[in-house]
Design a protein around this nucleic acid. Sequence first.
DNA 1: TAGTGGTCTAGACCACGTG
DNA 2: ACGTGGTCTAGACCACTAT
Lengths: 245, 245
Amino acid sequence: MAQSARQIADELRERIHSGELAPGARLPGEPALVRDHGVAKETARRALTLLVTEGLAVRRRGSGTYVRDFRPIRRVANRRPAQDGWAAGRSIWQADLEDRPLSVTDLTVEEAPAPPRVAQALGLAEGEAVLVRDRRFVVEDQPVQLATSYLPAELVRDSAIARPDTGPGGTYARLAELGLSPDRFVEELRARMPAPDEAERLQLAEGTPVVEVWRTAFTEDGRAVELNRMLLDAGVYVMEYHLSS
Amino acid sequence: MAQSARQIADELRERIHSGELAPGARLPGEPALVRDHGVAKETARRALTLLVTEGLAVRRRGSGTYVRDFRPIRRVANRRPAQDGWAAGRSIWQADLEDRPLSVTDLTVEEAPAPPRVAQALGLAEGEAVLVRDRRFVVEDQPVQLATSYLPAELVRDSAIARPDTGPGGTYARLAELGLSPDRFVEELRARMPAPDEAERLQLAEGTPVVEVWRTAFTEDGRAVELNRMLLDAGVYVMEYHLSS
DNA sequence: TAGTGGTCTAGACCACGTG
DNA sequence: ACGTGGTCTAGACCACTAT
């Protein structure tokens, strides 16, 4: 019965995909694998680690290792009201946190010199002052997103944007009042594994990537007025974009 | 000098982020870590594994473990010609494979019954025939993307879409000739760790997530004419979306 | 051939959560 | 209290890569 970590993982993966081990089900623990497959504990452990790093399983200390679930929040970057019909009911992933409001925690607002990347995106000189709004979004006690907004400090220093509570309509409504209404956006996305501090702030399970989004808002005449860096828990989000030619 | 795997990883991570260990640089090997930190080989190994699963390092058997590089290909989902100016030179990530053509390998074309998810997205009955075009994209001998297109077989069976070479303009030009010109698109994205077979087909380094994209093409009157499932190497791609309000 | 990473063992002890 | 996962050791042997 002696097998390698890979073989044991293959067998468990097959049982997961076949549905025998459904999402949320408990996998055989390390002692069970040692007994049934005649391997050392470290080998059993490595087998489970493979599944965990694939994002297929989650470990719960003191309890066991479980098949992971995926019930995403849907993030719709641009929903065009006039075109709302065309994709209704056709989504690929089933979302069960549809349009649920995110609560904000750990909000901080401060002025700081613009880091190089931020300066370039906003068309500022490096080190020029930017207003930095940092916050964390939580759904049902689970952190799901970190967001940091950068705005040219000179433009917004005297507005409600520089205060924790930006008022009704939020940052974009205040920008509009300043004659800087955002009209077009560019989003750049990348997926990667999180750094340890990011994993901690988002309370990420192992094997969960993050999606790093940099969103730049432009006024109608092409001025960059906001840069928003978001870090999403990829185990929670599906992103949706509506494009027309 | 005895330390834990985490501490050793922390130290190496710090040296990477400080720039002392630049992208492409060789990290201290397992024997060196054993010697310098007074730990067992397995512990040194675990330290390096942490960095690898974070996507910060890549192992090369027989050679060493190296700091990873990120020089992305930029995938621009919708470039609006009239609005091209507004984001020029302002990108967050520096791309060095800008607009480089992807070569296609492993192209297969066949008819098959629609899987449930495909049937729903295309508005077909489950099991109804779809044309399946499967292919792999390669840049400089590196596979970077897997793509599978599904089209209602009844619509395209007699067109060039059913042949390996779809002719000038590709699938969308042929659809236009059939009066089914794609006009609007929905893209749904999710990032996750790859299954082993996906990792192999894309020759993914460990610690590299994939981005799964499902793109549905609609005609002007709202008919879904194509569903394209793409699997991207997240270590290679940056995705860019242009949105207007 | 020497050095690197890749895998496994058999044991130890710890930390945490559940029952 | 017990069973779970978490970490570490000291050794063995294998497989691949560079030179």
